[in-house]
């Protein structure tokens, strides 16, 4: 393997890993805030891609107008999502009921986009492109790096930084953590837990939607984009469930492993990722970073 191939595979893997990381981070935020696993996480990403596609391709809005509008939409959808599949179920006798409801939501979202936009995939131009519309590629020596990948990496890092700051440093973050650790106590202190949960869902949807916009040029806008969430799941488990940093690192590992495995066994790309996951589970069931979600005896 030449160095240039190595570098380009590595960057490719990192950028995909970054997408998984953003999805995984959203998963963890939701688990922390409301204690449920969202099986529609990938479909939120898919919705994000479709909304951006609609704004960008159909309404032909320029990027700087499109993005604020998209974010408002994302926040709205996040809140609607919360009120349909979480809020009515928050007191369900089965914790699994909420999980299965998100699986239902996943089907609904996929079918809804098919009914609205048709089932054929739509092409989305890269953010930075050449004059002829092909994605711009950066050449450093022999290494070819698509600019889109670098943008994904950059934007991803910024988002992760902002979310970490929000949740660990800022006052709002403390509020949210308080609300998710003990909704009852938070209510007593005058922290409205419904607002914080709304905000969490909105933020998660914004993160996922942005991911959708970022991956759309590579995978096209299609209703099956949701399957990306499976890799995010794997990354989250490898990272150690419950810790954001762990999830991010785990997802990056998944991305890189996946990228390199295409070199050797293309048909078994999924297997390498999931075997990696299973090996991790056997050797280190708590993941790389031990989660904060514990069970008191």
């Amino acid at each position: 393997m030449t160095l240039s191939l190595f570098v380009s595979l590595f960057v490719d893997g990192l950028s995909m890993g970054m997408i998984y990381a953003l999805l995984g981070m959203g998963l963890i935020l939701l688990v922390r805030a409301v204690g449920i696993l969202n099986f529609a996480q990938g479909d939120l990403l898919m919705i994000g891609a479709y909304i951006c596609g609609c704004l960008f391709l159909d309404l032909k809005l320029p990027l700087w107008i499109m993005f604020p509008i998209a974010i408002v939409w994302f926040a709205l959808i996040g809140i609607i999502f919360m009120f349909t599949v979480y809020w009515p179920l928050r007191k369900a006798s089965y914790s699994q009921a909420t999980i299965i409801a998100t699986m239902g939501a996943s089907i609904v979202l996929q079918e809804a986009v098919k009914l609205i936009w048709g089932s054929s995939p739509r092409a989305m131009p890269a953010i930075v492109q050449n004059a002829n519309g092909s994605p711009k590629i950066l050449n450093v020596g022999q290494v070819t790096l698509p600019i889109q990948y670098l943008i994904i990496l950059g934007v991803g890092m910024v988002i992760i930084y902002l979310v970490l700051k929000l949740f660990e440093k800022l006052y709002v973050g403390k509020l949210m953590q308080a609300a998710c650790q003990d909704a009852y106590a938070a209510n007593l202190l005058g922290i409205p837990s419904i607002l914080t949960i709304c905000a969490t869902y909105a933020i998660v949807m914004i993160v996922c939607g942005t991911c959708g916009y970022l991956v759309a040029p590579q995978f096209m806008i299609r209703s099956t984009l949701g399957t990306l969430q499976l890799r995010a799941f794997a990354g989250v488990v490898i990272g150690g469930f419950g810790s954001i940093t762990g999830a991010v690192i785990g997802c990056l590992i998944v991305g890189v492993v996946e990228s390199f495995s295409t070199l050797f066994l293309s048909g078994y790309k999924d297997v390498t990722v999931f075997l990696l996951l299973i090996i991790f589970l056997v050797l280190k069931p708590t993941g790389l970073f031990k989660g904060k979600i514990g069970d008191k005896a």
Partner: peptide, 19 residues
């Protein structure tokens, strides 16, 4: 619309009759 109905009914099922 079958798939759509199917998805919606899963959510409704979980909300109104989880057991």
């Amino acid at each position: 619309y079958f798939q759509l109905i199917w998805g919606v009914s899963i959510i409704l099922l979980m909300v109104f009759m989880p057991e």
